[in-house]
């Protein structure tokens, strides 16, 4: 997990953005969940998506990993090394190429229940990336050590708390050495007292220079860690900006209302 191992460090400032999203649109039947989403993200930066449920933020994240197929728009990673135009059919090879660049941390962890903690982490590196078992296991153990779970290497997911499972989920994603880490409401399923451990790990990753897209309701985390915040509502980006500005002086009425509801729920 050291920055030198992170490929997201490869491009310095002034380089082409790591991720470029243009005109992303998606409908489920008559319901438009996304309407023309545009953003760019440079290597080493953290983008946080906030918004009410049903705003489309999770759909954006899932599109970046090919779990959701947009109806229109383009996604370009690493200056066009992987470029997908959703206007036409997308080949299976392109999906795999897009997924190779990123790794996802899920709200419900989605660990593999039939594999031990260590096997969960090494499955991708060994089976997909064909790395040597000894190397993959050594790296996995180092990562597990860092999140305080080395002694759980042989445990099955059901034996872990939610917070521990999610930390394994993060390690599983990082072990793939992706250029882009995607987090889909990573703390929303956790008991409140377990949220801190997971956010701490995420903050460390951000500090190390990993490029991250995070969907979350944790405003304090967003404020501390995000380089840019996008506020989505009704499938569009209503407002965007640096967290200090967006959280203290939102320009849009809808942003104000949303932030107020989160800060003063009753």
């Amino acid at each position: 997990m050291s920055p030198t191992e992170s490929p997201s460090r490869a491009s310095g400032p002034g380089a082409a953005p790591l991720l470029e999203v243009r005109g992303l649109a998606k409908s489920f039947g008559d319901h438009e969940v996304l309407r023309s989403i545009d953003f760019t993200l440079h290597a080493g930066k953290v983008l946080v998506l906030i918004g009410p449920s049903g705003s489309g933020k999770t759909t954006v994240l899932r599109a970046l990993n090919g779990l959701e197929q947009p109806d229109a728009g383009t996604i370009s990673v690493a200056g066009g090394e992987v470029a997908i135009d959703f206007g036409g059919p997308v080949s299976a090879g392109k999906w795999l190429a897009l997924r190779d660049r990123s790794a996802m941390v899920f709200q419900h962890y989605n660990l593999f229940p039939h594999l031990t903690v260590l096997q969960n982490v090494t499955e991708g590196p060994i089976v997909v990336q064909k790395r040597a078992r000894a190397d993959a296991e050594a790296e996995a153990m180092a990562l597990l050590e860092r999140v305080g779970l080395a002694d759980k290497r042989d445990a099955y997911p059901f034996e872990l708390s939610g917070g521990q499972q999610q930390r394994v989920g993060i390690v599983r994603a990082v072990a793939l050495r992706p250029q882009l880490l995607l987090f889909d409401e990573p703390t929303s399923s956790l008991d409140p007292e377990l949220v801190g451990d997971v956010l701490t790990v995420m903050k460390e990753l951000a500090d190390e220079g990993w490029t991250m897209v995070v969907v979350t309701h944790e405003l304090v985390f967003a404020r501390q860690v995000a380089d840019e915040v996008l506020f989505l509502d009704g499938g569009v980006i209503v407002e965007r900006g640096a967290p200090e500005r967006l959280f203290t002086a939102p320009a849009e009425e809808r942003t104000k209302q949303f932030l107020n509801r989160l800060l003063f729920p009753f």
Binding site: L96, R99, S102, A103, M104, F112, H114, V127
Partner: peptide, 27 residues
């Protein structure tokens, strides 16, 4: 087997066949 298991397989870069063989069928 929950849909999330297919998705987790895909996000670690597995094809449909590999996900089926290594993740879904054992469960």
């Amino acid at each position: 087997v929950p849909k999330g298991q297919w998705e987790a397989g895909h996000t670690i870069g597995m094809s449909r066949t590999t996900t089926l063989r290594r993740i879904i069928l054992p469960q």
